[in-house]
Write a protein that binds this DNA or RNA. Structure first.
Lengths: 201, 201
DNA sequence: CATTCAGCATGACGATCGTCATATGGTCAA
DNA sequence: TTGACCATATGACGATCGTCATGCTGAATG
């Protein structure tokens, strides 16, 4: 086995990525260490050479995934005009594709309550929530903090509810209603789906 | 042991109530059958005389808990004037007490993603979501379905986010922002907390 | 008072959980 | 080429998981 400088970091990232997918898809407690390692192409024993415990992995995976999403929102919000930036962020979030792909969905909507039960993971999550609200605030016409927080709440709740719907029609109605509440009333766009391979959240 | 007519139904309800509390507090997969039965004052073996499996218990508990909340919302919405009814529903939902008591909180905010992963439980949940949106629609000034769905999304998302906050200030800001978005702009009430022993959801 | 039987307790099954000790074997330095 | 090293594999630990078979017990029925 090569001992290249960053080989271990690469493997560690593979483990974290696999865990991120499996946690979102099946729930944190429903996925064992061996399932994560198998998905990463390894066997269960080597796990503790990379992470001190499963709980440490959970905290790191949740924090890193949400931090990536928050950074993406900031990048979009700071790049172009407020209107298109808002439509890109909101449109990709309130998209049926985001609802369908739970394994790549925003951590807030896939693991929110489960992370809330883990106090050690919450500070990092809350920091990213602040960043996401800040990014939204830069795009919103009424750019106060309250509007950004309520818009983020609407987006998170809509995706959670859409995943609970028993028909595509109800899910679509929830997403459309949330878009109508978050986006300015004059921009009724069909929400151009982002082509990035990244998570929507 | 007495064999009174409804003794078994009573025990069954005790099991379901204990499961509802434990599932919300620790997560569905983090609570075993023996923990549920112990919380109900019994031992693990008798469980399968009441429920065919743990998954059946999960589906029933989630559906029943949310159906109770939906029925309560309908009762409130149909009882008094739209304004006070809306303030009662929204105020008790977007209340720090609801955020704090996860073990009695609304199923949508405590078990939403976990239930979404269980397809067999979703029809009953979706039905209650429709009832809750209908109740909200009866109270909202603009009583169309879209406004009700977006208001419900905002409420659910706000409670999820408030539980992820690492400071009471952030949690309070999220709840206040959501109230500002859902309630009519002229009624800035301090949200009279409901004195019922029921869950807020 | 005797009998029956439903409701629950007891105990066990194989499987899987998180964690760790140790073996292996490929890769880099000398 | 040789030796050391370290990332990973193997295998095992006790605990707990969901589920079921069986035994006990006391209330209801005659």
């Amino acid at each position: 086995m090569r001992k290249a400088n960053d080989q271990k970091a690469e493997t560690r990232q593979r483990i974290a990525d696999a865990a991120g997918r499996l946690f979102r898809q099946h729930g944190i407690d429903a996925v064992g260490v061996d399932a994560i390692m198998h998905a990463a192409g390894l066997t269960h024993g080597g796990f503790y050479g990379h992470f001190p415990s499963k709980e440490a992995l959970v905290a790191e995976v949740a924090a890193a995934s949400l931090a990536r999403a928050a950074a993406r929102w900031q990048r979009i919000a700071r790049a172009g005009a407020p209107g298109p930036a808002l439509r890109q962020i909101v449109g990709s979030y309130l998209d049926p594709a985001h609802v369908a792909e739970m394994e790549r969905g925003c951590v807030l909507t896939t693991l929110g309550p489960e992370v809330a039960r883990r106090p050690e993971a919450r500070p990092a999550i809350a920091a990213s929530v602040r960043v996401m609200a800040d990014a939204l605030g830069r795009c919103l016409p009424a750019g106060d903090e309250a509007c950004a927080l309520s818009a983020l709440s609407t987006m998170v709740g809509a995706v959670v509810l859409a995943r609970l719907a028993d028909s595509p029609e109800l899910a679509a109605a929830i997403l459309a209603a949330a878009q109508g509440a978050v986006l300015p009333h004059d921009s009724i766009s069909p929400a151009p789906p982002e082509r990035s391979a990244r998570s929507a959240g």
